[in-house]
């Protein structure tokens, strides 16, 4: 089955002029809570939109990932009342517009982890939000410094991991519905599909085992500049570690889920006082290997999409891409020697 046949089930392409894009956005704004890239204090972020004119659809990549649409930074998940327990409910449909292919790929990783397509653990709070989420993806025509999505096998021009895809052109855009949910969001002059899906080749991967890299690599050198701020994990589209906290107010105990970061020294602190990862290189090693080794082992996909956010934001200049490249190089050298 070719990609074209698969996609055509949900209607033809829509060719929109710039004005039509705006009208269509105006239209969806009436029906949904819309989350889209907006400027906030000179930074582009994904945020809830109230006015169409605030939406910024261009080639810039928002500096934070859209993951908090489905996995909020702070979320009350349940409450303990006097004689019963209540779980949180989500009832509001949300439309995410303008997610770039790298962020769409990241959403797929989160889906894999939280909704357990492979029959693993299913996180009801995540999947509740995910069920109510409609995603309209958008192409990305500009490679920013630190971007390496193509090395991660992601095509910045098109992605199928969404409900509809908006391809920006110099004058207007082309909208392509990909699922039933995205079938009639944008409408314009119809045309036949010509996009061809060409998923690239993943070149930045670690084909190795933990035993081979855990102590043999110069992790201390890689992590020299780390200050342990955790910014990389907070802006990362796939980082998903969280902590649960109970707090009591007026007799009601609320359980809250908040993001956590493996880059904090206290992340692995045990109740007994032991801490298995006290040094910063151990924490950086965890982050790299989690993305490139442990998630691939457990879920079959690499949890780094090459968006480059951590590279651009790290105050210490740590670089996950260069680290993986260096490991690849060292492994190749080692294997050559063995042969």
């Amino acid at each position: 089955m070719s990609a074209y046949e698969m996609r055509s089930n949900f209607g033809p392409l829509h060719v929109l002029t710039g004005n039509q894009v705006r009208d269509a956005l105006e239209d969806v704004l009436q029906k949904f809570t819309v989350v889209a890239p907006v400027m906030a204090d000179n930074k582009l972020v994904y945020d809830e939109v109230n006015d169409v004119s605030d939406i910024v659809l261009n080639d810039a990549l928002p500096y934070k990932s859209p993951k908090d649409v489905v996995f909020p930074r702070v979320e009350d998940v349940m409450r303990f009342l006097e004689n019963r327990v209540e779980e949180a409910q989500v009832i509001k449909p949300v439309l995410l517009v303008g997610a770039k292919p790298c962020d769409l790929a990241a959403m797929k990783v989160l889906d894999e982890v939280f909704t357990g397509e492979q029959g693993r653990y299913k996180d009801s709070f995540y999947s509740n939000r995910r069920d109510f989420l409609i995603i309209v993806g958008m192409n990305c025509r500009e490679k920013k410094s630190g971007c390496f999505c193509e090395e991660r096998g992601i095509n910045p021009a098109f992605s199928q991991d969404c409900d509809g895809f908006l391809t920006l052109q110099d004058d207007g855009a082309v909208y392509e519905p990909l699922t039933e949910k995205g079938a009639d969001l944008f409408s314009g002059a119809t045309a036949a599909s010509e996009n061809s899906v060409s998923p690239g080749e993943e070149t930045l991967v670690l084909n190795t085992s933990e035993a081979e890299v855990f102590t043999a690599m110069p992790w201390e050198k890689y992590a020299e500049g780390c200050i342990g701020c955790g910014t990389c994990t907070f802006i990362c589209p796939t980082c998903h570690c969280f902590n649960l906290r109970d707090s009591e107010k007026k007799g009601i105990v609320t359980r809250t889920r908040v993001w956590d970061s493996c880059m904090y020294p206290k992340f692995t602190l045990h109740a007994g006082g032991h801490n298995p990862r006290t040094r910063k290189y151990e924490r950086f090693r965890q982050r790299v290997l989690h993305k490139y080794l442990y998630i691939p082992e457990n879920y079959g996909c690499t949890a780094c999409t090459g968006c480059g956010r951590c590279i651009r934001s790290c105050p210490g200049g740590l670089n996950i891409r260069n680290t993986v490249l260096d490991i690849q190089r060292r492994l190749a050298e080692k294997r050559e020697v063995h042969v």
Partner: peptide, 11 residues
């Protein structure tokens, strides 16, 4: 960004 989840009974 995203609104808090809601509970059936208000506090």
């Amino acid at each position: 960004m995203s609104e808090q989840a809601e509970f059936i009974n208000p506090a």
